[in-house]
Amino acid sequence: MGFWANMIKEFPYFMSVLLHGAVTTITVAVGALAFALVVGLVVALLKMSPFRVVRFVTSAYIELLRGTPALAQLFVIYFGLPDVGIDVAPVTAAIVGLGINGSAYLAEVYRAGIESIHKGQVEAALSLGMTPARAMQYIILPQAVRVMLPPITNFSIVLLKDTALVSVVAAPEIMFYARNLVTETFLSMQVYLLAALIYLSMTIPMARVVAMLERKRKAWR
């Protein structure tokens, strides 16, 4: 019927436009992931600081970022910062916004991963004469990384989906282009279906990877 005829006719055009957006989607996702991984680690380490003030500030950072929607954070960065004199480009706002949001989440993942390593491991390492730093480097972190891989991969999947939000800060990713296409052609069903397919083609393989990682971890225990 009309649906399929339009779909077949417009498929090449829609796909080329949407895939254009997919490039931005991936750019933003990778950028935000890198940002979140690094900043998250810093935050996690700060949270273990001996100074109560530092611990408090870091906790507040984590609570505030996890307790507010990513969309609100994006708005504050993209619309709010110019207001106080700092101009931000859309993609930058997207990466920083999602990155900061992710850093709070990953800080908790890091903490849980490190805490999950049995205290006996630390004790064994120290009794062998290792300094805390060496214990961390050779014994704790390698095991913690294995534990953290599934949640970090899960987070990447969530991050990929959250990039859809940055369409509102005019970052030219998939949904941004999708909305334009719909305004242009009124073929909302075809456009959004194709957009959905593109997302699924990225998230489903990643989900399989997570499942495999989980299985390997269970076997390894």
Partner: peptide
Amino acid sequence: ARGMPALVILYI
């Protein structure tokens, strides 16, 4: 449903 952003589902 889990593999798509909630936004896409809402739009649809």
